[in-house]
Simulated scan of single mutants.
Amino acid sequence: MADFRRLALFVTIGSFSIAALLGVLALLSGGDFGETEGRILLTTLLVGVTSIAVLCYLATAESRFGVVGVVGAVCAIPTLVCGLALIWGDPDFESDALLRAFGVGATLSATLAQVSLLLVLAASAPRYVRRMLGLTLVTVAWVAGHVCALILEFDNGGDVSLRLLGVMAILDVLGTVAVAAFAKFGGGGSKGERFEVPADLVPMLRARAEASGQTPEAVLRSLLQNDADDHRSDPATR
């Protein structure tokens, strides 16, 4: 898994580096800024956004949420292909079906990237943060489904529909920011000194985390909690 993650990271960064180089050359080349230069910049933007999404998916690679990242990658790759076809294809080749496919794919890819980050951030967070995450994921799913319904014209986009989408989108953003903030800075109790895990224990901790499908932080938290419970239940320690 670690080798695959490094390979995916190398390919992602390498692809975006090439696209970025082409974009810089297009801007610095002499002559008028024409259609070809515009297509190159759009390609750079598309590859860059896709690369960011892939990095979000890779964050789940060593956790029990790896399937979310895999599904995200499965959505992102054909979406990238559709986007490149729209950018470089002949105008007569463009169709409503291709535009809709790209719109739905982009929506799902962005949503799964968001979900990947939230799941990883909240994996070892306090229980109240995980409950907040559950409510946030409901709004995330609603917004994604609603946007896809509009793209596919299952929803006519009336006033009530758009107002409802706006409300859910606001709750989506609010929940995302709150979960990220509380998971990162909220802590699980009173503030105190931070300790580092000894270097010789790191391989063992990572091995147990990989075997159990959890993050190393979650494994360490579980071990400490179990030790504390055993200590409380042992009469000899009272």
Rank of each mutant, 00 (worst) to 15 (best):
W88E: 05
Y128A: 08
I40G: 01
T43G: 05
G34S: 10
S63G: 04
G89I: 07
G134I: 13
V54F: 07
L121S: 09
P91R: 03
T50Y: 14
Y128Q: 07
D92E: 14
V54Y: 14
F65M: 03
L41T: 07
T107P: 01
G38K: 02
L135G: 13
T50L: 15
R100K: 15
A110H: 01
I52L: 15
F93E: 15
G31E: 10
D96E: 15
A59F: 09
R100P: 13
V71Y: 07
F33S: 02
T50D: 12
A123R: 08
C56S: 07
V120R: 03
S63W: 02
F93W: 14
R127S: 12
E94M: 11
G31H: 03
G103W: 08
S109E: 05
L42T: 07
W88C: 05
V120E: 07
S116C: 03
A110W: 06
A113Y: 05
E37Y: 10
V68W: 08
A110K: 00
E62Q: 04
L119H: 04
G31C: 00
L108S: 02
T111S: 04
G134T: 13
V81N: 13
G31S: 04
L42S: 12
C82E: 03
F93T: 15
L108W: 13
L86Y: 13
S51C: 01
L112Y: 01
V47H: 08
A122H: 01
R131G: 10
S116W: 02
V47P: 08
A122W: 09
T43F: 12
G48Q: 13
A122C: 04
V120P: 08
A76L: 08
L84K: 02
G83N: 05
S95E: 05
Y128T: 12
I77Y: 15
V129K: 01
S109M: 11
G48V: 10
F93S: 15
S51K: 03
G83A: 02
L112I: 02
L99S: 10
L117D: 04
V70H: 05
A85L: 14
V71S: 14
S95A: 12
A123G: 08
C82H: 12
L119W: 02
G72E: 01
A76T: 03
A76R: 00
V70F: 07
S95C: 09
C75D: 13
L118W: 06
L133I: 00
A61M: 11
V67N: 11
P91W: 02
G69E: 03
L86H: 10
S95L: 12
Y57G: 02
A59K: 04
I52A: 14
T44F: 06
V47L: 01
G72W: 01
R127D: 11
V54K: 10
V49K: 05
Y128L: 03
S109Y: 06
W88D: 14
T136P: 10
L42C: 04
D90V: 08
V115F: 00
A113N: 05
